[in-house]
């Protein structure tokens, strides 16, 4: 019995290994195609490895960085993601604390509105949101975080409030009696206890903002500012012929950092994402 189980376990392991290899193959394929010369990248040759004749070295990467503005896009993407996530973490955790600690009709109505906003699909507000952003001049990478704070608040407040309901009031009351004002209580007592939730919310919102395509496309002026997803979409949209080499170089340059960050922090990331799913 035990032996039979062992053999079947080996079979399953082999199956899983094959599946895992198939799983990483699409990414590997993009990487080796990004090393080919433009003329060698053909529709039916995507699976063949570069040969000594078709090998282009890092030419596509140089092209992507020098003439396609990859570094600029990377900068904008980083800027937008960092400012948005920071704003969401600070503002929404404060707001969620207020909503859970002050029991009034208004705070309950607010909570309901935040939860409601999580459900509404982006298409419902995309046109009016981009017009509002234009009217208020919130259409640059330097202040688009206001929009992200507004549209991302739902999930963040919901997750923070969910956690705060389980935090005992006594600690906070003690600190208030000891003479802390609410701000001190929040930043010295509540925020440190929130750390796991901060990590979860931070990861979820960062993934969303980093990968978001439609919102920045509609809000930002595409001629001046392109985030990474906008840049990759722009390859097909605006050049006469799609330059596959630089495009695959851009995709590789986009995917590799994500994979590295993921491998470094996978425990937090998997936990954080799963926590968001179970609550959502």
């Amino acid at each position: 019995m035990a032996k039979r189980k062992k053999i079947s376990n080996i079979n399953w392991s082999i199956l899983l290994t094959i599946l895992a290899l198939l799983y990483v193959y699409p990414i590997i394929m993009i990487i080796f195609n990004s090393l080919k010369q433009e003329t060698a990248i053909t529709t039916n040759g995507a699976f063949t490895l570069p040969t000594s004749e078709t090998f282009a070295g890092l030419a596509n990467y140089v092209n992507a960085i020098e003439s396609k503005g990859f570094l600029q896009s990377l900068g904008y993407s980083l800027l937008i993601t960092v400012t948005s996530v920071a704003a969401i973490l600070i503002c929404c955790s404060m707001c969620a604390w207020f909503i859970t600690r002050v029991k009034s009709k208004i705070s309950q109505a607010l909570y309901f509105l935040f939860v409601f906003s999580m459900v509404v699909p982006f298409q419902m507000v995309m046109f009016t949101l981009s017009q509002t952003a234009d009217a208020l001049k919130l259409n640059t990478p330097y202040n688009i975080w206001v929009i992200y704070l507004g549209f991302g608040a739902g999930l963040a407040v919901f997750m923070f409030a969910g956690f705060m309901k389980s935090v005992p009031l006594e600690v906070e009351e003690a600190s208030m009696i000891d003479g802390c004002n609410p701000l001190q209580t929040f930043f010295r007592i509540v925020l440190p206890m929130l750390r796991p939730t901060l990590v979860s919310v931070g990861i979820l919102e960062a993934m969303w903002v980093w990968n978001d395509y439609l919102l920045p496309t509609l809000v930002l002026d595409i001629k001046k500012y392109k985030t990474i997803p906008m840049l990759i979409q722009y390859f097909r949209g605006s050049y006469g012929r799609v330059e596959m080499g630089p495009m695959m170089a851009c995709i590789t340059l986009t995917v590799i950092p994500i994979v590295i960050v993921y491998l470094l922090g996978q425990k937090h990331i998997i936990k954080g994402v799963a926590a968001g799913a179970v609550k959502g």
């Binding site: 704003a87 503002c91 929404c92 404060m94 707001c95 604390w97 207020f98 909503i99 607010l110 509105l113 935040f114 906003s117 509404v120 507000v125 009016t128 949101l129 509002t132 952003a133 208020l136 919130l138 206001v146 929009i147 992200y148 704070l149 507004g150 549209f151 608040a153 739902g154 407040v157 609410p182 929040f186």
Partner: peptide
Amino acid sequence: FVLPTLLAFTIGFIIP
């Protein structure tokens, strides 16, 4: 505590 989020929420969600 509430105003920053609420303002952004009004701009980013309620009005649109």
